[in-house]
């Protein structure tokens, strides 16, 4: 079938790239403007352009969860999102959890329960637990298991991760 290469009419379209273009990312409450190519993933923008290396790059293809961050409060894989498509949106990373040099209760609970070995998966696990507890302050063990089912731990620290998440829920309830 022969199709004429029709140029879209009327509606104004904005073509960005392939070179760098300006994007606003609201990360842990701070607004940042970064210059990125459209192919830049959110993960690379966080790590390379903003120096926030808490979210880890392990598989870079959506199969490990080490890069988990919250986008508008929901956990996503930063390696599978384009930074450009997060323009003007709210992102939370592990760096935003501690306040005034004081760890977040989830971080405290992970230490208390010894919920890590190598620690590579930990920032991602904690962000998934954060999203769960933000929404559900009374999770069951099943809820916790489901919440971290997209975060691979090669060290097999899961039993302690589950305990830490439940402990964190207690801590948060007792402090609110």
């Amino acid at each position: 079938m022969v199709t004429k290469a029709a140029r879209p009419r009327k509606r104004k379209i904005v073509v960005r790239g392939p070179g760098k273009t300006s994007v606003t990312l609201i990360v842990n409450g701070e607004t940042h403007e970064v210059l990125v190519e459209p192919r830049r993933t959110l993960l690379d923008a966080l790590r390379k352009d903003l120096g926030l290396t808490g979210a880890k790059k392990a598989c870079d293809e959506g199969t490990c969860g080490a890069c988990t961050v919250l986008l508008e409060g929901k956990p996503i894989y930063a390696c599978m999102a384009l930074a450009l498509e997060c323009d003007g949106r709210t992102i939370e990373t592990i760096e935003g959890l501690a306040r005034d040099a004081k760890l977040h209760p989830i971080q405290e609970a992970f230490i208390e329960e010894d919920a890590l070995q190598c620690g590579f998966c930990t920032p991602g696990q904690i962000m998934s637990v954060k999203a769960l507890l933000d929404e559900n302050p009374h999770p069951t063990l099943e809820d916790v298991k489901r919440a971290v089912s997209g975060n691979l731990c090669r060290c097999g620290a899961y039993p302690k991760i589950f305990k830490a998440a439940l402990r964190a829920a207690e801590l948060l309830r007792s402090r609110s």
Binding site: A5, A6, P8, R11, I13, R16, G17, P18, G19, R39
Partner: peptide
Amino acid sequence: MRSFEHVNAPDIKTAIALLRE
């Protein structure tokens, strides 16, 4: 990933027109 241009689709019609290229 190789580099590419990026367009936010403003409406369905325009998206279709852009995608046939």
